[in-house]
């Protein structure tokens, strides 16, 4: 029975392995989330901070 069942870890791993293929998703946001997950730092605060930084970076890049 258990062979066909995916564990929670499997679901998450597969999601992050295929996240780049999601059409229409911003590549930088995806990269940030993947690296936070790989580092074991995927928390609400860390996402919020990282998105804030990305916002500033994007703003500067576009202004340049």
């Amino acid at each position: 029975m258990s062979n066909k069942i995916k564990s929670g870890k499997q679901i998450i791993e597969e999601f992050f392995a295929e996240i780049k293929k999601i059409e229409g998703a911003d590549k930088k946001t995806v990269e940030i989330l993947t690296s936070l997950y790989r580092e074991g730092k995927l928390t609400d605060t860390n996402i919020q901070n990282a998105m804030g930084q990305l916002f500033q970076q994007d703003l500067v890049t576009k202004e340049e």
């Binding site: 679901i11 999601f15 998703a25 911003d26 946001t29 995806v30 989330l33 998105m51 990305l54 916002f55």
Partner: peptide
């Protein structure tokens, strides 16, 4: 305008990721 575009892009991305994720979770 740029701020709006950047935030909208982030929001759309999270929505797409969420939709993909719940599909996987529900299937499993």
């Amino acid at each position: 305008k740029r701020q709006q575009e950047i935030l909208t892009k982030q929001q759309v991305t999270f929505q797409l990721l969420f939709a993909d994720f719940i599909k996987r979770q529900e299937e499993a």
